[in-house]
Design a protein around this nucleic acid. Structure first.
Length: 344
DNA sequence: AATCCGGGGAA
DNA sequence: TTCCCAGGATT
């Protein structure tokens, strides 16, 4: 149902939210700073990632890369290592490229304009609005999943959040309630969506917007937001050869397409001659959001130094050992396999 | 406009 | 199991 609220005044909703936020803001490390670098990093880390899940990654990342320059001059593999286990690895690749963008295109100074921030790799309209508003008094709503949920409920609006029009639609809705302090407003919406206006079992009785929420008024909070798109998963079979000799083993790096971008893995093929060295096969199940993985890992034990050197040199494979593998980012199931091999 | 990209926690 | 999370890039 299209609604036309133009001419109406919903500013008091935003101001109520600000009042609530002043007393109930979560105590998070990145709330203590307006350093655009740190705010940017935290926005990327927490894309599609819960605070509890990403907090250690954020702290470790900032400790190792405290500013744009240290990140820009780092090796990509080390950036990926700090992203290990977080998922959506293109974020790590893009964050590294963006740091170098800031060095070359913006003279090493984090850009203050929304349009410039938007040019950074991995930064979309949400992140640009968040950094702009929190650090530079920008006046763009940082419309994310929390905005969809809170606004759809407050206005009892059944606009489908699955479609690509949702961002523009809820951005306009957000401007109706957006007060002067946009930076705090954006963060307040995140906290309200996380702590009160939760997807399931929202705490409506504690909600500062209880008296303004149309969905609550008609007891239909659970019907919002409307999301029609279904999540589908498909099966995927992977095959690996854990080729090793005296604690060393063969690895390779994945491409930057498909899953686990730029992460390390074992070879997925083995010359026919070497299949006589296969000792065991371990099959691992692993779930991704859109894929159910079945991973066959063949343990290939090379019997002699001569064969090992012949194999690794001729095929120009990357070699590591258990210690060295700690400094590389492996997908979780392969990391587990390496750990288990260590026990044997 | 539709699809893909992780991993973990909550219900 | 299913859904969702401080989304963005690609096609």
């Amino acid at each position: 149902m299209e609604k036309n609220f133009k001419g109406s005044d919903f500013l008091h909703v935003g101001n109520k939210l600000l009042g609530w936020y002043k007393e109930n803001a979560r105590d998070l490390p990145f709330r203590k700073t307006k350093d655009p670098y740190k705010i940017w990093i935290c926005e990327i880390v927490f894309q599609q990632t819960r605070i509890a899940q990403g907090l250690n990654h954020y702290n470790n990342f900032i400790r190792r890369f405290p500013d744009v320059k240290s990140l820009a001059s780092a090796e990509e593999d080390e950036v990926l290592l700090h992203w290990k286990g977080l998922g959506y690895y293109s974020r790590a690749i893009n964050i590294h490229k963006a740091a170098q963008q800031i060095m070359t295109d913006f003279d090493g100074v984090f850009p203050a304009r929304y349009e410039d921030i938007l040019q950074l790799k991995g930064v979309g309209k949400y992140t640009a609005a968040a950094v702009s508003s929190i650090c530079f008094n920008g006046r763009m709503p940082a419309v994310d999943g929390n905005f969809y949920r809170v606004l759809s409920r407050v206005f009892a609006d059944d606009f489908d959040i699955s479609g690509s029009k949702a961002f523009a639609y809820f951005s306009q809705l957000a401007t109706l309630v957006m007060p002067e302090n946009v930076g705090d407003f954006n963060q307040a919406m995140m906290d309200l969506g996380s702590e009160i206006c939760k997807p399931k079992n929202p705490l409506c009785e504690k909600c500062p917007l209880k008296d303004d929420c149309l969905a609550f008024a008609v007891n239909k909070v659970s019907e919002f937001p409307v999301k029609t798109k279904k999540v589908k998963t498909e099966d995927l079979h992977l095959q690996y050869y854990f080729i090793h000799y005296k604690g060393q083993f063969v690895i390779q790096q994945r491409k930057d397409d498909f899953i686990w971008k730029k992460l390390f893995e074992f070879p997925s093929s083995l010359p026919e001659d070497f299949k006589i060295f296969i000792k065991t096969l371990k099959t691992v199940q692993h779930k991704l959001t859109h894929k159910n993985l079945t991973i066959d890992i063949y343990n290939v034990e090379i019997p002699s130094k001569a064969i090992w050197e012949d194999f690794t040199v001729n095929n120009q494979y990357m070699i590591t050992d258990y210690r060295g593998s700690q400094n590389k980012s492996f997908p979780k199931p392969l990391e587990s396999y390496i750990q288990n091999s260590l026990k044997d």
